[in-house]
Write a protein that binds this DNA or RNA. Structure first.
Lengths: 253, 253
DNA sequence: CTGATTATCGTCATGCAGACGACTATGATC
DNA sequence: GATCATAGTCGTCTGCATGACGATAATCAG
């Protein structure tokens, strides 16, 4: 591998973000409307170019804050639980018709946010249920849907699908489902996160036994709440555990 | 995100390979000796630049074949079981002192190969047990070891560590351990793969029960062999299963 | 033939997970 | 205020997978 500074082909490097949250019992992703060609007017994942002296993770965090106001960090800021990790890198030669772009996709898990947030450099942004963004050609579309204008630009449909699959599998064996929750949450709220991400119904009693019996997963914060109605529920915070052993089992079928 | 073709910073994109195999009861990685500065004479992971119109996975497969002769592909070529997947992307601004390089690392799992292979564009290559490549500064070194010349160049030590950890966790819940085996193998040979990758001893009887009882993991090929000594062992091929449910359990401690 | 080595089958106890009953504590409704 | 719906929490039972380990089978090296 002889080194010749002029011999390597030039690439542009971007970061794209799969920002997931749970809203109204549905797993939702952040999508921004493209103001530029190509794919003008279509929805896409938020993202942007990596600066010349910027780390990949820093670029992802910067884009996230620019487009959502969310800050990453363990105990920082208002939204404490935001989680960011690298997802995968997409570099098919023709994935961007303008030039050769390699995109390092990142996955963000965030608690439910009041509004899609404004003030980004995208014309508009929204939370969309992932099942509406992931409809493949040939799938059923509701009559009132936007047809293929709901399809994501570039290869962002694939990126989103990979991110969703990563999230689905990761909450099995890690405590990351708490990243979808507010700092204090109930067992029922955590269960609804699992149900939304996996798209299944879980037995409340077995779920309660499992999560409260896993050391380090949850720590009681002392208070209770009735915000879900019914009997007051104990409030918990995320414990120090990061891996769940044995894991949460995703029901078959 | 206004588009200006001249505004994006130029990057070089490379692929680096973590090629793992099991030799002599030890998990080994492929390392090549660098002939160029920086890190001249040091060991590094194989890899190279991505061509202008080349997909990332294709570049990884090309580099793999150039440096080892291995061909990726399900039923192709001589070595059938070779597995290649994207690992992660490393892009710290100062990871290469020459210029801004983003490296998309890939993980390769291969059966034991007779020789480190020659004919690559690297001066020399060898299989090294991962524990010798992953010694951190401050760890014990055997007196006869090459000291820090055994440390990998660039951030390849971190990349290798990430690849090893990926392999260790992936054989838990997938059938990928068979990628370390020849096309036909015995239960004992598969068990020795797990033992080498995890660095633990497994009970032969429970292991046998587990792998032969998991549908689709192994299919008998009909023959037997005594190449491991002792009683003849039944030969198997990898079945169609890709995920193991329930997974293989890695012993604690 | 004897022993070493490896493969394979079986048994038993433990523990977790799924299915589900029962009870508790709140707000909503009449 | 009584009743109902809702959600949370505690228990029980059963099946199954696993860990620990005994026992037997089939080869090779002396």
């Amino acid at each position: 591998m002889p080194y010749d500074p002029s011999a390597y082909p030039p690439f542009a490097v971007t970061v794209d973000l799969v920002v997931l949250t749970v809203r109204k019992h549905a797993l939702c992703a952040l999508a921004v409307r493209r103001g530029e060609s190509p794919f003008q007017g279509r929805w896409a994942l938020p993202g942007g170019f990596v600066a010349a002296s910027e780390d990949l993770g820093s670029a992802a965090a910067r884009e996230l804050e620019e487009e959502t106001g969310l800050r990453v960090g363990e105990s920082a800021g208002s939204a404490a639980g935001v989680h960011l990790e690298q997802l995968a890198t997409y570099g098919a030669p023709d994935r961007d018709p303008r030039m050769r772009v390699v995109s390092v996709a990142h996955l963000v898990l965030a608690p439910d946010l009041p509004a899609p947030v404004s003030g980004g450099d995208a014309q508009s942004a929204r939370w969309a249920p992932v099942h509406t963004l992931l409809l493949e050609a040939g799938d059923e579309l509701e009559p009132e849907s936007d047809r293929d204008s709901d399809q994501l630009a570039f290869d962002h449909g694939q990126i989103l699908a990979d991110g969703v699959e990563r999230a689905r599998s990761k909450i099995e064996y890690s405590a990351l489902a708490t990243a979808f929750c507010t700092p204090e949450f109930t067992v029922g709220e955590l269960r609804r996160v699992y149900e939304a991400v996996w798209g299944v119904a879980l037995d409340p009693r077995n779920f309660h036994r499992k999560v409260t019996g896993t050391p380090g997963f949850l720590v009681p914060s002392g208070g209770t709440t009735t915000r879900q109605g019914g009997r007051p529920a104990q409030l918990f915070r995320a414990g120090g555990a990061t891996v769940l052993n044995p894991p949460m089992l995703r029901p078959e079928i």
